[in-house]
Amino acid sequence: MKVVAKNLNFTYSPKTKGLSFRALDNVNVEIKEGEIFGIIGKTGSGKSTFVQHINGLIKVQKGGGALKVGDYDLTDKKCDYKSLRAKVGMMFQYPEHQLFAETVFEDVAFALKNFAKDISAEEIAARVKEALSTVGLDYNEVKDKSPFDLSGGQKRRVAIAGVIVAKPEILVLDEPAAGLDPKGKREFLELLLRLHKDYVKTIIIVSHDMNLVAEYCTRAAVFSGGKIIATGTPKEIFSDKNIIEKSGLDLPLTAALTEKLKSKGIITDSDFTVEDFTEKLIVALKNGGKIR
């Protein structure tokens, strides 16, 4: 499923003078199947507002442009949001705050029961088991526990399982790694990559972590004041001083280092992933000479 937004506009409280706020301003973007697409930009630039359009949590406003997700036309009044949401999973900051059920099993099964009414008990158990093991939890150990008795990291895994259990084709993540310690963050990213390999096709990720974006995203869109001011590969975005300046973003570490080493004449370029950067650096070091 492809996500295509054309001239998407959105205004909060459009009818109340003084309170109304233009959060999206002519947003044009196309997110292809199979991408890990980054959404970056300063706080308040409209990132969350945009991604919540993708599964219809925020409805496209009248005259607000066009938005298509696969075959779903979100400007259509008759759009079937429920089946759309089964295909587009969404996870917010602190997803563990959505836990509510008495047991981990019940909580993870929640989405399944909502989306597929006539699903059998065995099928539910099988899917829950699969989802829990995908996020690295032991089914038999946790399934009957109260989600509130788990540790913070485990809670978050349960919450993730509760989203991916529906096997969405697109997974939208709004700052999902917030509040995790470095180890938790690393594990989370590994989990994401694993998901992308054999579970969900497309991942759309809102993040303030430029290192993450440079390392994992195929492409990204830069939001600023409700507009998209640039779309491209991390390499294209972080090489353009103009964009960095205008959007107020940080450079990823690899980009900053590449810049520095380029100015000293040690390496010529890298594509800003750790892998490629070290590769280029090693080649330069082996060639010797260039280091002063």
Binding site: F92, Q98, G162
Partner: peptide, 13 residues
């Protein structure tokens, strides 16, 4: 608002 959205995303009606 946030929780309603999170549960809606999981198919709550």
């Amino acid at each position: 608002d946030r929780i309603i959205k999170a549960q809606k995303a999981r198919g709550a009606d």
